[in-house]
Design a protein around this nucleic acid. Structure first.
Lengths: 222, 222
DNA sequence: CCTATCTTGGAACGCCGTTCCAGACATGTC
DNA sequence: GACATGTCTGGAACGGCGTTCCAAGATAGG
């Protein structure tokens, strides 16, 4: 592994795990998860697939490294002060925005177990849960419920965004979707038929925050 | 497509979309998502890959059909009566158990948009939300928060289960995991360090239900 | 300068989803 | 019965994937 000998004078086009991960993040942003292949990556870095494998064990490790890199870069400064619930809301929005910017993050974060940056986020949310005075026996449940909702909602949002070419008009897509719900049989689908209007007018980010508040309200009640 | 001519006397080893989907579900249950390939599937059905493509458009359609089949078979009878919150809890547990039984369902359900069986579940939850007297403007938010949590939690549970061979001892796995959390730096990870014990002792299904109750508590408060 | 180690990159392997197509099969018509 | 027709089968083949292998180039120490 490239543990030592990193500050010596190498040729300046030398590979490194950082350069590889950086290129991987760029390719994921440009072409999504299916756009990242070792062949395309090695072409971008002007090398062969074998060279990459000297720095990275396999694609899973590459994806994990790209995930940590992308999330960490978005988590630099943070509103650490304020009431616990506000801090949680801020963390949630940071994650939502990060996944909105890098849609492939949604798939990746909710795949494996919580580790790396995800673990740090879990920790920060847990600290705020404790600061709220939630009884010890319910802290784990509360924190994981928040984590699951945040990851699930951001992921759902990313999945929705991924289904349309980047250029399409959001209002038009929503109207089409809402029309489909409104067209459902009112006898069999009264609820979906009713709220089709809310689907058309809703704002993803605001609704995400409403969901976080919903859970926070439940946590505060315990 | 095989639309008509289904009741005529064909040879009894004839392919059909039902037989294909049934075999696909079995393979997914046995070997997970990566275990379902058109080659293995055609070998199991004693035919070639090309024959399958006459009944199924592509792998996405096959996965969607398998998802609907597996979820529908688990949703036969249902406790439709009782207070709305009880009905929601019952639906949530049915989904949790279904995904627990077919771990690949977790990945699949949260991939695409809500359609098929997922749409029906959304409808049922929405009806209960309405029955709870939630204001019209908040019904969409409440229902989607519940859906996201249910899908996210069940999916997370399935991902955890998928990481260990079927035979491994659950208590041992949890103990190892808890030990890792307990070994974290108490200065940097006070929360995770503290609740490692709860991680070791927790019951996935009970904690899932606690999370649902958390959200229901918040919804009732609005 | 020579040698041992680190690093590269292209060829090759086995597998995947998918397409193509020759032909088996059941059926309706004379 | 012969034949034409549309339905259905299954094996070969295509391009691309993750990954492995290894000969050769680059670099550092004696």
């Amino acid at each position: 592994m490239a543990t030592r000998t990193r500050n010596t004078d190498r040729r300046d086009d030398a590979l490194s795990k950082e350069r590889i991960v950086e290129a991987a993040v760029a390719m994921l942003d440009e072409a999504g998860e299916s756009g990242l292949t070792f062949r395309a990556l090695s072409a971008r870095l002007q090398t062969g697939p074998g060279a990459i494998y000297w720095h990275v064990a396999n694609k899973d490790e590459l994806l994990a490294a790209a995930t940590n890199a992308a999330l960490t870069s978005g988590m630099t400064a943070e509103a650490a002060a304020g009431p616990p619930k506000d801090v949680i809301r801020a963390i949630a929005l940071i994650m939502f925005d990060a996944i909105d910017e890098h849609p492939w993050l949604g798939e990746q974060l909710s795949r494996g177990p919580w580790q790396g940056v995800t673990l740090q986020i879990c920790e920060r949310i847990g600290q705020q849960i404790q600061a709220m005075g939630v009884p010890a026996g319910l802290q784990f449940t509360s924190a994981s419920a928040l984590m699951i909702y945040i990851l699930g909602a951001a992921r759902q949002n990313a999945a929705n965004a991924r289904m349309h070419p980047p250029g399409t008009d959001r209002a038009e897509v929503l109207e089409t979707h809402a029309a489909a719900w409104r067209g459902l049989d009112p006898e069999q689908f009264p609820f979906l038929h009713d709220i089709a209007g809310q689907l058309r007018d809703h704002d993803d980010r605001a609704q995400f925050l409403d969901g976080v508040n919903l859970i926070l309200a439940g946590v505060g009640d315990l």
